[in-house]
Design a protein around this nucleic acid. Structure first.
Lengths: 198, 198, 198, 198
DNA sequence: AATGAATGAGGCTTCATTCAT
DNA sequence: AATGAATGAAGCCTCATTCAT
């Protein structure tokens, strides 16, 4: 019903690449999916409720009806994602029978699996978290810190062990470098790529 | 004259942190400086010409007078930056008397120096290049590719030499991982930090 | 609510001369009516959405809400008008039992009735059609051509008949001269004038 | 020096069709020529000083420097044209030895020659005169009336003579019909057309 | 004669949101 | 669950104009 809206960002295809199966799903789910797709491409500020509505084929009012506000969309995306993403690794971290190198190995695998599976949400998480306001913002920052500290602790464990690894390096910087390497994969990783580059 | 504009992004301070010296400089220069500051914080889409104008203390029309359009600002920021950033490393790359590992070492230092000095412009370059349109866009993409290929060639040189380094790794993926590690520093690096983390 | 806007075109009265009856009608209808009035006076380029909004007593956004864009207004005016205006005369044209002179007579009456009743829309049609863009423009041009060809065909029929009328005249030029004479009435015809001139 | 400005009216070619001879001429003359070209296509309101400046290859300030204001351009175009256009026919009109039909014949030839030679200025005169303000406006209206009355007087002369022509027709309406027929040629007449239509 | 800097006013459009239905 | 009407605020940009040079 709603006329095709002109999208100034030509690298953004309206038809979701993900909907191969065309599985019938609720309006809400369609909205979340589409929001993730759009935001991961053009960012929170670059996304507009109107474009979202057009893509899903509903009216702007309906989008608001589901999420209360634009920030509500960002929040929904993150809430569906963040908690799991933080807690899932804890068991490994706290497993006293594992040495640091093994933990780091596992962590990188864990994190990269997330990149592979949800690089869209992850990049939103990284780039657009700053646009949250109020309480949501505090919660978001807290969670980011907690997640990062996991790696710091692993590095510290490694340094405390017999290896030469990371000797004399600051654990925080090292942790950030490793996270950076992984996270930046959001930018270049392409599904079904056999990681052979291009 | 222009009333202080309400800024919805509360983490963005209007008073430039960089202008300690308050060196008198041209309107154009003030504009570029401010644009870089704002864009590196809230992105191209998050920046508005009105905020820019208010921060510099001129009218919106004057901003347009200098840059023709909003995209013109992004373009100006990148043009002032990109060319140097690409060519400067070439001599090292083409130096036949250097082995791969040394080149990589030098590249990382070179790139990280850039991060340290101009993380603001670099992050704009990475995050907002996609908003260029038309010919500027093509040029931008071309330059990005060229810069990236430098690292790929270094990795390949290393692989062709006697070291075990990067053995059996795809050079493109490896290059991207290294670039990612460096570039991500834009996110966490803070000037005058002794790199002790936080 | 909206302050009376200063109108730079002083010969344009804001209060519609046509709304004698002040019949309550929808916002959309009010908009179309007003747009026709304004455009027929100052042309498409001379009309502004803001003036329109003020005259109808709504906000600029609401005007866009109804027409999507300024060009949408022009389009709506023409679409409400053009189709009828082209098809209505066809039966006469195709009536094989009528001679050319009769047809011409009927056409001029038909066309002048239109001038008398809708000189406003007609003059917009003539003067501002060129500001349509894209597909609308093509459609517009096609329709104009079709309408004009009706007269050409009548002239040709007359020339093929026993009359001396239009002997040796080019039918296209003659048709255009006749249309011109009629259309120009938009400029000087005033309702309720007993056609006594002034 | 000035970047090519985007022109939204695609049927308007920037390169003057008239400048075949590329005769070197003063900036002022170039401006008048260009203004006539542009205004005759898109009207006074559709023309902008910026586009004019770009087309002539000078700055906006220079345009103002020559004409004081935008209305000054319109005025200049009309002043260069109107006086001649009114006075030139007077001798014929006042020639007592000519009968009305001959005068009308001569008038139409005279007027159509003007159309043929200066349809651009004539159409500006007809369509955009209403945008003059102040004293210029009064003068303009006065001149228009005078010119029109010439035809009325010819018609009246014809009616007072022995012909049956225009018998029982209102002279004002008839005059307007004739003027309309002629003037409308501005819309369709194309130079070098052998008037064979299309 | 010609221009660049600067601008206020306004123009079209987008956008997030509210409200009644 | 969903929407259309309506809007205020803001966004980008155009435009005519002024002024100093």
């Amino acid at each position: 019903m709603s006329a095709k809206r002109h999208c100034s960002v030509d690298f953004l295809t309206y038809e979701s690449e993900r909907d191969n199966g065309k599985i019938e799903c609720s309006t809400y789910d369609k909205l979340i999916k589409t929001a993730i797709m759009v935001m991961s491409e053009v960012g929170y500020k670059g996304m507009s409720i109107g474009i979202l509505a057009d893509m899903v084929g509903i009216s702007k009012s309906t989008v608001i009806h589901y999420f209360k506000s634009k920030e509500g969309i960002l929040l929904a995306v993150m809430e569906n994602f963040l908690p799991a993403y933080i807690d899932e690794f804890k068991p490994v971290l706290n497993n006293k029978s594992l040495d640091g190198v093994t933990k780091l190995n596992k962590f990188v695998h864990f994190h990269m699996k997330m990149v592979a599976e949800r690089k869209d949400v992850l990049s939103i998480n990284i780039k657009d978290g700053k646009f949250l306001t109020g309480k949501s913002r505090t919660v978001y920052q807290q969670q980011q810190r907690l997640y990062g500290q996991q790696v710091v602790r692993i590095i510290q464990q490694i340094q405390s062990e017999e290896t030469n690894l990371f000797k004399d390096l600051d654990p925080h910087v090292t942790a950030k470098a490793i996270m950076g390497m992984c996270n930046h994969a959001c930018v270049w990783y392409k599904k079904n790529d056999i990681l052979t580059g291009r």
